[in-house]
Design a protein around this nucleic acid. Structure first.
Lengths: 127, 127
DNA sequence: TTTTCATCTTGTAATCATTATAATCAAAAT
DNA sequence: ATTTTGATTATAATGATTACAAGATGAAAA
């Protein structure tokens, strides 16, 4: 049932858990090996994965959608300097999914993110 | 020093605190009264406001930037049904700005948002 | 008052990520 | 074998935002 392309895309997502890749990043690596691969295919596949809950979408940079295969509840940190997106463990009961409502509204998705300077870039400043 | 247009834009932001307007929303109302007004002016003004910390940007819908003049620490709730963006009070120490670092990374911005069905839309379903 | 200088505004054009569309393809089902 | 369903592809369209260049403004300096 799952297509060859979709398997490759999912494999890529699994291999690059930390990079929270964009469609472009997936395309530029996979298209080297796969004889033909369309950008649209990746969009379609990721949207299908989204609906099935296999991946989640991160809109943190404002200019693009990043995709995340890590389904554990967590937040993200975007470094203004190096651009990395770093997973942040959270103990927030909302993020954990313990709370289903907030102020009477039904919660279906929880997103939390920080922007700033990451640990490594801070070191570079001092060193 | 502040321009006539910029004052009008800030006035609009203050009058419509709850709607978290887009550039388009600001433009379509203000351009009726102001003889001429450019979309670019609104973008420029809002970016200037952003740098001065007068407003903050909310990228919650994925398709557009919403602007918020409420500088109190708070989160947002996006209703999937009516599209409203609702302010949510938070007691999270990170959102409150009490914590300046997380896992060694320096925090400069904190964003939190929920997606789901708002209180009012839930009522409509039952009623 | 005139000049200067920086800043803001405007309109148009460009960018760029994403989506829509329509044709093609493949695999499964009847 | 033929139909059906869903995936893939290429191209074109969308739409929010930014880039750019020319013109307007307004305060400070001469």
């Amino acid at each position: 049932m799952p297509t060859y392309q979709r398997i490759k895309i999912l494999e890529y997502m699994d291999k690059h858990r930390d990079s929270h890749p964009t469609v472009e990043m997936i395309y530029s690596e996979l298209s080297r090996r796969l004889p033909i691969l369309s950008m649209t295919t990746i969009y379609n596949a990721l949207n299908a994965f989204l609906e099935k809950g296999l991946v989640s979408a991160i809109t943190i940079t404002g200019t693009e959608i990043r995709y995340d295969i890590n389904t554990n509840p967590h937040h993200h940190f975007l470094c203004r300097e190096c651009g990395r997106i770093i997973d942040i463990d959270v103990e927030c009961p909302f993020a954990r999914g313990k709370e289903k409502d907030i102020c009477g509204h039904r919660i279906e998705e929880v997103h939390g993110y920080f922007k700033g300077i990451c640990k490594d870039c801070l070191k570079k400043h001092k060193g």
